[in-house]
Nucleic acid binder design. Structure first.
Lengths: 228, 228
DNA sequence: CCTCTATATGACCGAATGGTCATATTATAT
DNA sequence: ATATAATATGACCATTCGGTCATATAGAGG
């Protein structure tokens, strides 16, 4: 954790350092990031850096906490849907959160993706239930609820599906950001209203359809009537 | 390109150096990889390294070429399916190639994924047709063929679908590798027959079904009869 | 004004980096 | 055996790295 001194700093100075660090960690892993680069870009003395942080990893962990905090903060601002979300509205919301985060904090998103790349949690065995748990559990929860509500086909391998959904949710938002820029010919405003922009909703809906209905025109009509 | 001297080396020595480099680039980006680490692990003198390569990037490009070559070589060994592949058998083959490559060269696969991460090609505009082209074009080709053969639903956004398929194909194989190891409790043999192993085929088929049919139990029956 | 504490600074350190080069060793040809 | 070319080597270099520390500056309380 950063030292007290860092938190005593004025907000502008603290945010300056944070933003410089975000830039560094967006383009570099912890291994290739450089303390010297950060102090130079932030315009502070090397000695100051070590008055604020134990070392580079200390700062890195702080930035990762920023990711977490800002995402939670952002979630709380997104319009809370009806109390009883139907299964796929819940999935849509999970994707929408990632999109909103990407649009508002593209560089922080990149830091997060880089972290996930360097520290992959493909899957692990839940010590209690003995069940496999891919990713952070959000999609397992979604799928469990879905199966319970009879919304998810029974033949779906839920762990595999959770993994695929995790991968897609992680990589869909940068695609969307770039595509929106190309489609409209102008850069995307960072504070775009994700929940209502028609272009975002169109693409998100198409992704939802692909996930829900698949891409085949005539898919063996619902896997032989949900057999197996 | 590596210097002639490198290609004059005995096969064992050349492969030793290549393998050490693959290890290095599997765990490090070009920025964080170290010449010193490589020469130490390979047991060669620093001076020798620079008799073989211009610099680290020179070696890196050589390894990337190895990725390409070995993948092509592997494709040629995979049983060539019937001349007229139906749409989804073609997709299945594309996925199978990635799986086989992952199983045979897991570290090289990692090098490739790392490269793709550092040099993302989300999408670009084809200068000729003006069409968007996500990824390397393989999945665009697949989808075009699919639409032509009336196998892909008309409402699918093909560029989005191509991107999603690219992401999934890139990340499915490491998941499969890890899961197979966990499911069976023992490490996966590197020369496992991908095309026939039942466990691989089960999981691959489930992924295919998810992509083709979606995960919803009752998806608005084929998107309102393929409307739009 | 003086005192004490918190913050800021950059010269400095040893270690590690990528890269060079004169020299030594080996292989090849005559 | 001798000469020539190809390869191997590690000491060496300038630069950069993460990290330290004595000193300087600023602020707060009196």
């Amino acid at each position: 954790m950063p030292k007290d001194t860092f938190f005593h700093l004025s907000q502008v100075k603290r945010q300056l350092i944070e933003n410089v660090a975000i830039e560094e960690f967006a383009d570099n892993s912890l291994q290739s990031a450089s303390v010297n680069a950060i102090v130079n870009n932030a315009g502070i003395a090397k000695g100051s850096f070590y008055q604020y942080f134990e070392n580079l990893e200390d700062l890195y962990k702080h930035i990762l906490k920023l990711v977490k905090d800002r995402k939670l903060e952002l979630i709380s601002t997104l319009p809370l849907p009806a109390n009883n979300l139907d299964t796929f509205r819940y999935l849509q919301r999970l994707l929408q959160i990632e999109i909103a985060f990407e649009l508002k904090y593209p560089r922080l998103s990149r830091v997060e993706r880089r972290y996930n790349f360097e520290n992959p949690v493909n899957s692990s065995i839940d010590p209690e239930t003995g069940q496999r748990l891919s990713g952070d559990g959000r999609f397992h929860a979604f799928l469990s609820q879905g199966v319970l509500h009879d919304d998810i086909a029974t033949w779906v391998d839920t762990d595999l599906a959770a993994y695929v959904l995790g991968v897609v949710s992680q990589w869909f938002s940068p695609y969307l950001l770039e595509r929106m820029g190309q489609d409209s010919g102008k850069p995307v405003e960072f504070n775009l209203d994700v929940s209502h922009d028609p272009h975002v909703q169109d693409l998100l809906q198409n992704l939802m359809d692909i996930l829900m209905a698949g891409i085949a025109r005539d898919p063996q009509i619902r896997k032989d009537f949900y057999s197996k």
